[in-house]
Amino acid sequence: MERTRAVFAISVAAEMSSLQIQNLRVYERRGLVTPARTAGGTRLYSDEDVAVLRRIRELLAEGLNLAGVARVLELEAEVAGLREEVRALNARRGR
């Protein structure tokens, strides 16, 4: 299964990430996670979404507030993108 394929209902995603359903709704409102939606509006989460939820839980446990969590997630995504750019550049240079 693809990591980005949204297949988990909110209750399953909450259980998989050890979070409360209402917290997942808050994180969505804050833009920390963006689950897919069915035509009827039901949230569906992917493996990747669940990984983000687990990371949010870890960062909150470390004492960050939601604004701090958002910034860390943003920076982690930026670092991952830059690492991919470096890999691509090195591959073009024959490294």
Score class of each variant (00 low, 15 high):
28 E>C: 12
38 T>L: 11
89 L>Y: 09
69 V>D: 01
14 A>K: 04
41 G>S: 06
36 A>R: 06
62 E>T: 07
1 M>K: 11
63 G>A: 08
53 L>R: 04
67 A>R: 12
25 R>D: 11
13 A>T: 09
51 A>R: 10
2 E>A: 12
49 D>V: 06
8 F>H: 10
50 V>G: 02
40 G>T: 10
23 N>S: 13
83 R>M: 07
75 L>K: 05
12 V>D: 15
65 N>Y: 12
11 S>T: 05
20 Q>R: 14
3 R>N: 14
2 E>Q: 12
52 V>F: 01
19 L>M: 15
12 V>R: 12
64 L>E: 02
79 V>I: 05
89 L>T: 06
61 A>K: 05
54 R>V: 03
50 V>N: 00
55 R>K: 13
60 L>Q: 09
57 R>G: 03
51 A>P: 01
74 E>V: 00
86 V>T: 03
22 Q>W: 10
53 L>M: 15
41 G>L: 04
65 N>C: 05
43 R>D: 11
32 L>F: 09
41 G>E: 11
67 A>Y: 03
14 A>F: 09
47 D>G: 08
89 L>Q: 10
10 I>R: 08
5 R>H: 10
24 L>S: 07
41 G>Y: 06
50 V>T: 01
78 E>R: 06
80 A>S: 12
73 L>Y: 02
35 P>T: 13
56 I>T: 00
87 R>D: 07
86 V>I: 14
92 R>G: 13
64 L>Q: 01
68 G>D: 03
92 R>K: 14
